[in-house]
Amino acid sequence: MLRYIIRRLLWVIVLLIIVSMVTFVIFYAFPSADPAVLRAGRSPSPALIAHIRHTLGLDQPIYVQYWRYLENIILHFNFGYSYQFSLPVTKLIFQRLPATISLTVGAVVVWLLVGLPVGMISAIRRRTVLDRATMTATLVAISAPVYWLGLMSLLLVSNDIGVVHIFDGAGTYTGLTADPGRWFGSLILPWLVLATAFAAFYARLLRSNLIETMSEDYIRTARAKGLPEREVILRHGVRSAITPIVTVLGIDIGTLLGGAVLTEYVFNIPGVGRLAYEGIINADLPVIQGTVLFGAFFIVIANLIVDVAYAFLDPRVRY
């Protein structure tokens, strides 16, 4: 197992180098806008643009630029300097990471608490009214764009612009350490909005897996042995059916830690996704590149954790 983890960690490094290369080529070799011009602002003198180009190293050959970029990341953990905010990208990302983690963790809890029971009940009560109703609801939830859902929820139930004043609205996010109560209150609505589609998807996924699993021979054997139905479902059915969900969960968590762009945007949660959005809008290339690399990092690490977790969930898996 240890050798496997070390091997995977080495692959993580290789993968991140490849990602850095691809993002560098996209954003530096073929940028959507000239970084020096963007930094210079409106109507600068040619001397100023030349100075900025030199400062940013843009007057060097591409391979030298990439090598310096990689060197800065590896040796100094330096992802560059934001044109818009005049701050190091690393500092910006770390400032915003707690909000993204808060949003992700809470949403994961919500969608697992909602999605898994709904999936199980639907599978067990297959073809009943309850099953059809929940599956229709999940279809609607999956189809609703998160930005629209966010706006609608604010217009309906936020305590500033909502029809009914229930939850804290947009722009109220407070850090956990600053005020835990306000932190929780400000995130309830974003958690619900972000979790809606995921909960629906997980419910449908678990339902289909569980239906298939419950028709397996070993389930019949378990029942024949006289095990209580509850134990048959939870110990033998769900444990097997949940394995693919763990795979998807790992990827989803990794993706969201890279930034839940739309949810952060509509609720003005100062997270990494919001930062990535601002980077894109302002063609702030170091920020775009930094957030992409961080996103990639979280995804590959989450995948690694999932693969290791497989060994514990599925006795057939050995490394």
């Binding site: 706006l151 604010l154 217009l155 500033d160 612009i161 609205g169 947009a170 722009g171 945007y265 509509v266 609720f267 003005n268």
Partner: peptide, 9 residues
């Protein structure tokens, strides 16, 4: 802030 939300707020 989202411009629509900010304007309504």
């Amino acid at each position: 802030n989202d411009p629509t939300v900010a304007a309504r707020q």
